[in-house]
Amino acid sequence: MVGYTDKIKEIAGRLLKECTVDMVIGFRKGTMPMMNEPCFATTPEAVDSLVWDSNCGINLANYLTNRKEKVAVIAKGCDSRNIVTHIIENKIKRDQVVIIGVPCTGMIDKRRITDMVAGEILDVSETENTIKVKTADAETLFDKAEVLQQNCALCIHRNPVIFDEMVADAIPEQDVVDRYADIQKIEAMDIEDKWRFFDDLLRPCIRCYACRNACPLCYCPTCFVDESKPQWMGKGQDPMDVRTFHFLRAYHCAGRCTDCGACERACPVGINMRLLTRKLEKDCQEEFGWEAGLSLDQRPAMDVYQANDPEPFIK
């Protein structure tokens, strides 16, 4: 992915100069290493700050919701699937977006890297397969494959499924043998262990809703947790309320989640709430053969009625 930046700047500059779009949504360097932030370029001069590297984990589809103007957006495989979901759910029109596709070799896990080195990280640079982390005392070289976000290591849709322009040629997809080993482990636990597992998983949650805000699917004008008439659930850190929030949010993403990992990445306390969304992703695949955001012509699993649906759980 090294070298994408120039091509992105060229495409973005051209689209803005020709007034094909009013704005290009991409990434620019953040104020801290490994923290690229979204960048909204509206003039051809502004595209100079656009970058692309292995720290572009934020899902840019999140910034398309209900846009009125014409926008171009830079999309990885997962982002492109979320754009498809947005179009299907009428959150943006297809002819309103110019999708600049990026074949993605994965994003690096900033939390894991921070844990692996001692001291404050001053700079992170990369080549195609390695990541070099510089602290005040030392320089450490990592194999990129070792420090990928888990969702990127398990990714099977690295190339955009929908695009108007591509930044580079498509890359080979990964052969991931078992995407759901960790979910199967939880499924095999007994009831008490399951309860305790999620107690431990969700205990650190401070209800900051960063996961919800980073998620392109969470675009409801008023989220169920913010409703007060009726108030569906408590707003504090009572373990039952925390649990209700996480499980219900996951359910709202059933059949829509593309496992982009934005939620986990945004979490300040490092909760792997993707375990919940991935369980639903797995169920959707097993029960309905459905994977979210692959085609504009297919209605989502939770949106179709079939007369021959067995529904064995309804008595």
Binding site: I191, E192, R196, F198, F313, I314
Partner: peptide, 16 residues
């Protein structure tokens, strides 16, 4: 619900 650690027999669905 089962994944979360609620006994499956606590939750029933029926169309009546």
């Amino acid at each position: 619900m089962e994944l979360m650690g609620i006994e499956p027999d606590r939750l029933h669905f029926s169309w009546i």
